[in-house]
Computed example of a mutant assay.
Amino acid sequence: MRVNFLIKYSIAYILDLILGDPHWFPHPVRFIGKLITMLEGLLYRFKCKKFTGGVLAVLTIAITFIVSFILAKISVVLEIFFLYTTLATKSLASEGFRVCKILVEGDMEKAKKELSYLVSRDTENMNVVQITRSVLETISENSVDGVIAPMFFAFLGSLFSIDGVSLALPFAMGYKAINTLDSMVGYKNEKYMNFGTVSARIDDIANFIPARLSGGLIIPIAAFILRYDYKSAWRIFFRDRLNHSSPNSGNSEAAFAGALGVQFGGKTSYFGKIHNKPTIGDKLKNFGIPDVKKGIRLLYVTSWVGMVIFTIIYSLISYIK
């Protein structure tokens, strides 16, 4: 049974907004993670770490692509379900709300512990301002990784097919494999400096267009709809988007910072060492719980604007074809 891609993806998008990522559910990314761990165990022992790390990346992406194609071919229901799992709008918002709720209750220790599950930075000595800043930075950065980028690749893949099977799911799930590789082996530490090089570079390439679409177009439009400072979202995007160690993360962070009137970056502790990160945005106020709530609203509207923009582009291309 053939179903129009826009119908399938709209259902997947709505499922994400309703269900999010239940903790009891064995998310496909967990299986991708187990695949990476298994392949790393086989490949890390060899001497040429860059080469074997590249093999790890290629095998992980290829296996994920092939399995996703088979799932899409088996059933439309399976295709829609797994497309839904590539999106993370509600789960990202829920994590932010959870920390906010704990802060409102006044349990700082629990809030810091909850935050430690979301970020790699040290949380033990954080105050309310540092906690809310960290939550907002995570939401702004992951608005690309968890929402716009998988959406972008699903729509891109939908323009191609093999034996009548859309490549929307293989493209979207392939992106999730790339993102998972980067989060697991793409570190610049002694263990992964060489082994994770290829995974990190592939992730940089994959996020290049989605990150700039998000920061330069989608987030400012979302800010305009919410009557946030959309002009500053654009201004800070063009001014500060390169003030980040990642070639992509600064794009969405800059747009978020401008829209909310906050400043990201500054002193941050990682593994016991203080790092002075370049600042992004203008410090018009200190971070507070209301800012997190505003950031979550911006996340939701950003995902909706992304859906609308990609739907329009897809419809135009389909009409031309």
Rank of each mutant, 00 (worst) to 15 (best):
F5P: 13
Y13P: 04
L17P: 01
I36W: 14
E40H: 13
G41T: 02
L42I: 14
L43Y: 15
K47L: 06
A62I: 14
I63D: 04
F69G: 00
A72F: 05
V76S: 14
V77N: 07
L78I: 14
Y84Q: 06
L87K: 01
S91C: 13
E95F: 00
L103Y: 03
M108R: 10
K113C: 05
L115D: 07
S120M: 06
T123L: 04
N125I: 01
I131Y: 01
L136R: 03
S140N: 13
V144K: 03
A149C: 13
P150A: 11
F153Y: 15
A154W: 01
S161Y: 12
I162G: 06
Y175Q: 04
I178S: 13
G186F: 12
Y187I: 02
K191S: 10
F195L: 01
T197E: 13
A206T: 10
L213Y: 01
L217F: 13
I219R: 00
I221P: 12
I225Q: 05
L226W: 10
Y230P: 05
F237S: 01
F237G: 00
F238K: 15
D240E: 11
S246Y: 12
N248T: 14
E253R: 03
E253G: 04
F256T: 04
G261T: 07
G261P: 02
F264M: 15
P278C: 10
L284N: 13
L284E: 11
I289S: 03
P290Q: 11
V292I: 15
I296M: 05
R297W: 10
V301S: 07
S303H: 04
V308L: 15
I309S: 14
Y314C: 10
